[in-house]
Design a protein around this nucleic acid. Sequence first.
DNA 1: CGTTGGCTTGAGAGGGCTCAAGGCCAGTGG
DNA 2: CCACTGGCCTTGAGCCCTCTCAAGCCAACG
Lengths: 191, 191
Amino acid sequence: MHELLIKNFSRHIALTDEEISRLPDFFQHKKVGKKRYLLEEGTVCKADYFVIKGCLRQYQVDNEGRESVMQFALEDWWIADLYSFLTGTPSAFNIDALEDSEVLVLDYDHQQRLFNEIPKMNIYWRIIMQNAFVALQRRLLFQQRSLEERYLEFLKRYAYFEQRIPQHQIAAYLGITPESLSRIRNTVLKK
Amino acid sequence: MHELLIKNFSRHIALTDEEISRLPDFFQHKKVGKKRYLLEEGTVCKADYFVIKGCLRQYQVDNEGRESVMQFALEDWWIADLYSFLTGTPSAFNIDALEDSEVLVLDYDHQQRLFNEIPKMNIYWRIIMQNAFVALQRRLLFQQRSLEERYLEFLKRYAYFEQRIPQHQIAAYLGITPESLSRIRNTVLKK
DNA sequence: CGTTGGCTTGAGAGGGCTCAAGGCCAGTGG
DNA sequence: CCACTGGCCTTGAGCCCTCTCAAGCCAACG
């Protein structure tokens, strides 16, 4: 099994060697070329994806054709449309690769089996969901601040991958136009 | 144990009668008068609260004194500052009662014991965290729409308690000024 | 070396905010 | 029973931040 994933699990729960040896039964390995889709709007999100290489994004396109980025996912992150995944309903999101990427695929049935056969996985998922929830709350509050504050917060939290993401994607994540982001960067730089 | 809570658990997991009989060991009952605080900014959130009567709100006050409402909680809802609760750090939020209310208090140690003694509680909390996460994602996306769309979405999802909440609180939840909300309501009514 | 996509810059417009005043209760005290 | 008060909602006027639309630049790539 890929070491990134094992380390990730181990951050929250203690897996035995025996349990680790069973992990490969649950996951599939998949390569996603740049600009290729893991999920397309209107289809059901059938799996949760763990990124081991590259960079992906989950986004929505509104009636006017504007994109809103829900999430970026780099190495060591999970990505999926959880709502579609959990309910089995068609997704409103797309997930595609910003770079050539590789993911571990955990489809719904395998996840359920994982919960049954290694019950402490419930603890792991409870904890990462709690963390994701808290992060999202923080993001929601920053959404009400000025553009500059939002951008600085983004830099503070995500400086380590900011250079890997095109600016207009960052704008779509922050909920602002690329033009505004360009101007903000200018004023921030001058300080 | 209060029936609302048992029903809530039962929506996601199957508790035995024996397990239900043990629940009272974990919870305390507490009354909170209108305008009284369950949590004050700067203190640690030591418990997760399940509302059995009344209405509470979780909110933040920014440097300019503006309030942002993170969440309302009525009967059958959980409320807490999860970040403070999980990390034991001082909270940036306040939680107070908009009406005379009653809650069941689950403090951190009791929750940990609950997870240990009734392991399927991990499943329950995993599921409600997933649901809360998905709801928050939806809210985040609506934050980028126009005032009117945001208000209509709020009505659609929360019509059943809209009358119990003062308008300026709803404005603070939607991230707009009370004046703007008042104007929006006017234009919506005319349609 | 022409085309394409991403970033920047400018000018103008508009949505939502600020500040201020007025009206309408509900609660309170005389 | 009534005047008074304070909180909440409404309405108006003016402004500012951010968006839109448009053009220009530059690097990457065929």
